[in-house]
Protein backbone atom coordinates (compact mmCIF):
# COMPACT_ATOMS: atom_id res chain seq x y z
CA UNK A 1 0.00 0.00 0.00
CA UNK A 2 1.22 3.44 -0.78
CA UNK A 3 1.03 6.56 1.27
CA UNK A 4 -2.46 7.31 2.50
CA UNK A 5 -2.09 11.03 2.31
CA UNK A 6 -4.83 13.58 1.79
CA UNK A 7 -4.62 13.47 -2.01
CA UNK A 8 -5.49 9.77 -2.04
CA UNK A 9 -8.26 10.18 0.45
CA UNK A 10 -9.87 12.64 -1.95
CA UNK A 11 -10.27 9.98 -4.61
CA UNK A 12 -13.65 8.85 -3.36
CA UNK A 13 -16.51 8.05 -5.74
CA UNK A 14 -18.25 11.22 -6.82
CA UNK A 15 -15.35 13.43 -5.75
CA UNK A 16 -15.07 16.51 -7.95
CA UNK A 17 -12.36 19.13 -8.10
CA UNK A 18 -12.99 22.10 -5.82
CA UNK A 19 -11.98 24.54 -8.56
CA UNK A 20 -14.72 23.20 -10.84
CA UNK A 21 -17.34 23.14 -8.08
CA UNK A 22 -16.41 26.67 -7.03
CA UNK A 23 -16.80 27.88 -10.62
CA UNK A 24 -20.32 26.46 -10.77
CA UNK A 25 -21.56 27.48 -7.32
CA UNK A 26 -21.62 30.39 -4.87
CA UNK A 27 -18.67 28.89 -2.96
CA UNK A 28 -15.01 29.86 -3.17
CA UNK A 29 -12.42 27.11 -3.61
CA UNK A 30 -11.54 27.34 0.09
CA UNK A 31 -15.16 26.98 1.04
CA UNK A 32 -15.55 23.90 -1.18
CA UNK A 33 -12.47 22.42 0.47
CA UNK A 34 -13.88 23.16 3.90
CA UNK A 35 -17.15 21.54 2.80
CA UNK A 36 -15.18 18.44 1.91
CA UNK A 37 -14.17 18.19 5.56
CA UNK A 38 -17.81 18.32 6.56
CA UNK A 39 -18.74 15.86 3.80
CA UNK A 40 -16.09 13.38 4.98
CA UNK A 41 -17.47 13.57 8.49
CA UNK A 42 -21.09 13.06 7.41
CA UNK A 43 -20.31 10.36 4.85
CA UNK A 44 -18.36 8.22 7.31
CA UNK A 45 -20.69 8.43 10.28
CA UNK A 46 -22.30 5.02 9.64
CA UNK A 47 -20.87 3.54 6.41
CA UNK A 48 -17.37 4.78 5.65
CA UNK A 49 -17.61 4.83 1.85
CA UNK A 50 -17.36 8.52 0.98
CA UNK A 51 -21.05 8.79 0.16
CA UNK A 52 -23.86 10.17 2.31
CA UNK A 53 -26.52 7.53 2.82
CA UNK A 54 -30.01 8.49 3.96
CA UNK A 55 -29.36 7.11 7.45
CA UNK A 56 -26.27 9.31 7.72
CA UNK A 57 -28.24 12.33 6.57
CA UNK A 58 -30.95 11.61 9.15
CA UNK A 59 -28.31 11.10 11.81
CA UNK A 60 -26.74 14.48 11.01
CA UNK A 61 -30.11 16.23 11.19
CA UNK A 62 -31.68 14.46 14.15
CA UNK A 63 -28.84 12.55 15.89
CA UNK A 64 -30.96 9.51 15.10
CA UNK A 65 -30.39 7.45 11.96
CA UNK A 66 -33.86 5.87 12.05
CA UNK A 67 -35.95 8.99 12.42
CA UNK A 68 -38.25 9.25 9.42
CA UNK A 69 -39.22 12.75 8.39
CA UNK A 70 -40.99 13.69 5.17
CA UNK A 71 -39.06 16.94 4.76
CA UNK A 72 -35.66 15.41 5.43
CA UNK A 73 -36.58 12.74 2.84
CA UNK A 74 -37.47 15.48 0.35
CA UNK A 75 -34.20 17.34 0.93
CA UNK A 76 -32.24 14.10 0.58
CA UNK A 77 -34.03 13.23 -2.67
CA UNK A 78 -33.34 16.68 -4.14
CA UNK A 79 -29.68 16.54 -3.12
CA UNK A 80 -29.44 13.05 -4.67
CA UNK A 81 -29.53 14.45 -8.21
CA UNK A 82 -28.48 11.14 -9.80
CA UNK A 83 -31.25 9.39 -7.87
CA UNK A 84 -28.99 6.52 -6.88
CA UNK A 85 -29.81 6.58 -3.19
CA UNK A 86 -26.69 8.39 -1.99
CA UNK A 87 -25.36 11.94 -1.99
CA UNK A 88 -21.98 12.33 -3.66
CA UNK A 89 -19.63 15.19 -2.89
CA UNK A 90 -20.46 17.14 -6.06
CA UNK A 91 -24.17 16.78 -5.41
CA UNK A 92 -23.66 17.90 -1.82
CA UNK A 93 -21.81 21.07 -2.80
CA UNK A 94 -24.10 22.03 -5.69
CA UNK A 95 -27.22 21.49 -3.59
CA UNK A 96 -25.89 23.27 -0.51
CA UNK A 97 -24.96 26.19 -2.75
CA UNK A 98 -28.68 26.94 -3.07
CA UNK A 99 -28.58 27.74 0.66
CA UNK A 100 -25.58 30.09 0.37
CA UNK A 101 -26.33 33.70 1.33
CA UNK A 102 -24.99 34.91 -2.04
CA UNK A 103 -27.20 32.63 -4.14
CA UNK A 104 -29.98 34.47 -6.00
CA UNK A 105 -33.36 34.36 -4.31
CA UNK A 106 -34.90 33.01 -7.51
CA UNK A 107 -32.82 29.80 -7.16
CA UNK A 108 -33.98 29.39 -3.56
CA UNK A 109 -37.61 29.93 -4.53
CA UNK A 110 -37.33 27.34 -7.32
CA UNK A 111 -35.70 24.82 -4.97
CA UNK A 112 -38.42 25.29 -2.35
CA UNK A 113 -41.07 24.77 -5.03
CA UNK A 114 -39.48 21.46 -6.04
CA UNK A 115 -39.26 20.51 -2.36
CA UNK A 116 -43.00 20.98 -1.87
CA UNK A 117 -44.01 19.47 -5.22
CA UNK A 118 -44.05 16.04 -3.60
CA UNK A 119 -45.15 14.10 -6.67
CA UNK A 120 -43.03 15.97 -9.22
CA UNK A 121 -46.05 17.15 -11.21
CA UNK A 122 -44.81 20.71 -11.66
CA UNK A 123 -47.50 21.93 -9.28
CA UNK A 124 -48.07 22.02 -5.55
CA UNK A 125 -51.47 20.48 -5.10
CA UNK A 126 -53.88 20.85 -2.21
CA UNK A 127 -53.49 17.20 -1.26
CA UNK A 128 -49.71 17.63 -1.08
CA UNK A 129 -50.06 20.73 1.08
CA UNK A 130 -52.33 18.89 3.50
CA UNK A 131 -49.95 15.91 3.58
CA UNK A 132 -47.10 18.25 4.51
CA UNK A 133 -49.10 20.00 7.23
CA UNK A 134 -50.04 16.62 8.72
CA UNK A 135 -46.39 15.52 8.55
CA UNK A 136 -45.34 18.67 10.38
CA UNK A 137 -47.97 18.13 13.08
CA UNK A 138 -46.83 14.54 13.40
CA UNK A 139 -43.27 15.61 14.18
CA UNK A 140 -44.20 18.48 16.49
CA UNK A 141 -46.10 18.83 19.75
CA UNK A 142 -48.74 20.91 18.03
CA UNK A 143 -52.16 19.28 18.06
CA UNK A 144 -54.79 20.66 15.70
CA UNK A 145 -58.20 19.24 14.91
CA UNK A 146 -58.88 18.08 11.37
CA UNK A 147 -61.26 21.04 10.93
CA UNK A 148 -58.51 23.49 11.83
CA UNK A 149 -56.06 21.73 9.48
CA UNK A 150 -58.63 21.94 6.67
CA UNK A 151 -59.14 25.65 7.37
CA UNK A 152 -55.40 26.36 7.36
CA UNK A 153 -54.87 24.43 4.13
CA UNK A 154 -57.91 26.01 2.44
CA UNK A 155 -56.98 29.56 3.39
CA UNK A 156 -53.38 29.14 2.31
CA UNK A 157 -54.38 27.47 -0.90
CA UNK A 158 -56.91 30.13 -1.85
CA UNK A 159 -54.31 32.79 -1.10
CA UNK A 160 -51.57 31.11 -3.16
CA UNK A 161 -53.65 29.71 -6.03
CA UNK A 162 -54.34 33.10 -7.60
CA UNK A 163 -55.51 31.57 -10.89
CA UNK A 164 -58.00 29.42 -8.96
CA UNK A 165 -57.32 26.24 -10.91
CA UNK A 166 -56.79 24.06 -7.85
CA UNK A 167 -53.00 23.87 -8.01
CA UNK A 168 -50.09 26.19 -7.32
CA UNK A 169 -47.72 26.67 -10.23
CA UNK A 170 -44.25 28.22 -10.15
CA UNK A 171 -45.54 31.66 -11.12
CA UNK A 172 -48.11 31.65 -8.33
CA UNK A 173 -45.47 30.34 -5.91
CA UNK A 174 -43.13 33.23 -6.75
CA UNK A 175 -45.94 35.73 -6.13
CA UNK A 176 -46.90 34.02 -2.89
CA UNK A 177 -43.33 34.03 -1.61
CA UNK A 178 -42.98 37.70 -2.55
CA UNK A 179 -45.97 38.39 -0.29
CA UNK A 180 -44.65 36.04 2.42
CA UNK A 181 -40.84 36.43 2.37
CA UNK A 182 -40.44 34.70 5.73
CA UNK A 183 -41.15 31.41 3.92
CA UNK A 184 -37.64 31.58 2.49
CA UNK A 185 -35.90 31.98 5.85
CA UNK A 186 -34.67 28.41 6.05
CA UNK A 187 -33.42 28.53 2.45
CA UNK A 188 -30.40 30.56 3.57
CA UNK A 189 -27.75 29.21 5.89
CA UNK A 190 -25.59 32.12 7.12
CA UNK A 191 -23.22 29.47 8.45
CA UNK A 192 -22.09 28.69 4.89
CA UNK A 193 -20.25 32.01 4.80
CA UNK A 194 -18.15 30.92 7.76
CA UNK A 195 -17.59 27.36 6.67
CA UNK A 196 -13.83 27.84 6.35
CA UNK A 197 -13.68 28.93 9.99
CA UNK A 198 -15.54 25.82 11.10
CA UNK A 199 -13.36 23.46 9.08
CA UNK A 200 -9.99 25.22 8.75
CA UNK A 201 -7.72 22.18 8.48
CA UNK A 202 -8.37 21.55 4.82
CA UNK A 203 -7.81 25.18 3.94
CA UNK A 204 -4.35 25.01 5.49
CA UNK A 205 -3.62 22.07 3.17
CA UNK A 206 -5.12 23.74 0.13
CA UNK A 207 -2.99 23.83 -3.00
CA UNK A 208 -5.25 26.27 -4.78
CA UNK A 209 -5.64 29.93 -4.01
CA UNK A 210 -9.03 31.54 -4.22
CA UNK A 211 -9.39 33.92 -7.09
CA UNK A 212 -11.65 36.15 -5.04
Amino acid sequence: MGCFCSKHSRQTPGYEEPTILASETSFTVSEVEALYELFKKLSSSIIDDGLIHKEEFQFALFRNSNKRNLFADRIFDLFDVKRNGVIEFGEFVRSLSVFHPNTPQSDKIAFAFRLYDLRYTGYIEREELKEMVLALLNESDLILSDDVVETIVDKTFIDADSKGDGKIDMEEWKEFVARNPSLMKNMTLPYLKDITLAFPSFVVNSEVEDSE
Binding site: L38, F62, A72, Y116, L136, I152, T156
Partner: peptide, 25 residues
Protein backbone atom coordinates in the same frame (compact mmCIF):
# COMPACT_ATOMS: atom_id res chain seq x y z
CA UNK B 1 -54.88 31.66 16.35
CA UNK B 2 -53.99 28.34 14.70
CA UNK B 3 -56.65 28.70 11.98
CA UNK B 4 -55.00 31.94 10.84
CA UNK B 5 -51.68 30.17 10.24
CA UNK B 6 -50.14 30.03 6.82
CA UNK B 7 -49.67 26.34 5.97
CA UNK B 8 -46.30 26.91 4.34
CA UNK B 9 -45.14 28.93 7.34
CA UNK B 10 -46.06 25.99 9.52
CA UNK B 11 -44.27 23.52 7.25
CA UNK B 12 -41.13 25.64 7.13
CA UNK B 13 -40.65 25.09 10.87
CA UNK B 14 -39.93 21.39 10.30
CA UNK B 15 -36.73 20.11 11.85
CA UNK B 16 -36.16 18.22 8.60
CA UNK B 17 -35.81 21.53 6.78
CA UNK B 18 -33.37 22.98 9.28
CA UNK B 19 -30.09 22.16 7.55
CA UNK B 20 -28.04 24.14 10.06
CA UNK B 21 -28.06 20.91 12.11
CA UNK B 22 -25.68 19.46 9.51
CA UNK B 23 -22.97 21.80 10.77
CA UNK B 24 -23.30 21.02 14.44
CA UNK B 25 -20.23 19.33 15.83
Amino acid sequence: KPAAMNAFELISTSQGLNLSSLFEK
